[in-house]
Design a protein around this nucleic acid. Sequence first.
DNA 1: AACTTCTTCAACCGCATCTCC
DNA 2: CGGAGATGCGGTTGAAGAAGT
Length: 313
Amino acid sequence: MRKPTSATATAKPTPCCIKVGLKRGPWTPEEDELLATYIKKEGEGRWRTLPKKAGLLRCGKSCRLRWMNYLRPSVKRGQIADDEEDLILRLHRLLGNRWSLIAGRIPGRTDNEIKNYWNTHLSKKLISQGIDPRTHKPLDPQSFDPSKPSLSKANLSQERQKEPMKTVSSGLEETTSDSTPIANNKENEYFQNDINAHLDVQHLANHFIASQGYTGLLTYDGTSGMDLRGNQRLGIGEADDQDINSGTDDVFSFLNSLINEEAFQQHQILNVPHVNSTAPSSSDPFVSSTFGLGMTGWESPLMSSALNQNDSK
DNA sequence: AACTTCTTCAACCGCATCTCC
DNA sequence: CGGAGATGCGGTTGAAGAAGT
């Protein structure tokens, strides 16, 4: 919904925006119809040539984005459920801003949707708890000031009014449908339990991912490049849905093991021998409360399906 | 009712990486 | 090996609508 800008505005135009006369901005129902009909008939891909063949005055990128985020039949619309939110939080702690990876494990949700939800809801929620949403670590008490403009009290109360704070489930407590105070003890418990786990969990995730042939590191701010587009790097080839999954399944089975304590303990012993020097022992009480991410012996139905699914976005 | 401020989220941009030749 | 083109990702923008004054 951005205001159309001149195609010559950028110093070095990308190929898709160099052509003048291409339409920008919100899609009309007619355009949606054209795109959906074409893709149903011809299939996804070849985005550059697709608009012309489909009779659309759009660039390929725009068509791809519209299809991926809105028109695909598998896209689920509507409110993010509590268990989805919980899963996003956990995956984000492990993966950072790898939105497409996170989305790949939440059926029907797109990377864009999750990114937006994170930026508009979850990051604020974490900040309100004194947690840095990028690192999942405590904000510097010196610098943490809830009255700061980024999360003014006015904004917070507004936020609470609009959307009564949902309990961030640790999986152990029952969620309430009532409006819950922001300083909910269980929530605090969830975050405090998780804070200490963050460093080590991410270390393990990094280690495993690197061992699978991916490059780069998971970082707390999500800025440096772990190549998880690296399905192709792994030699898997054309990235259709099937291939995408086979490329990331190993990673996610490992993430699953991090999230599911029992499986994690087994995985740690069997598959990740090198991390023991830095990872706490699985018998350590600390590990039970932190590597289990506060959800010992619990796995939500969504979590199970997300982590075991064979389809991807 | 009118105006201002805030929030949401669809869409765009730049860039990294891949494949193909 | 290197260049060109294609694809996909994460960050950012800004219009529209909601909420506040």
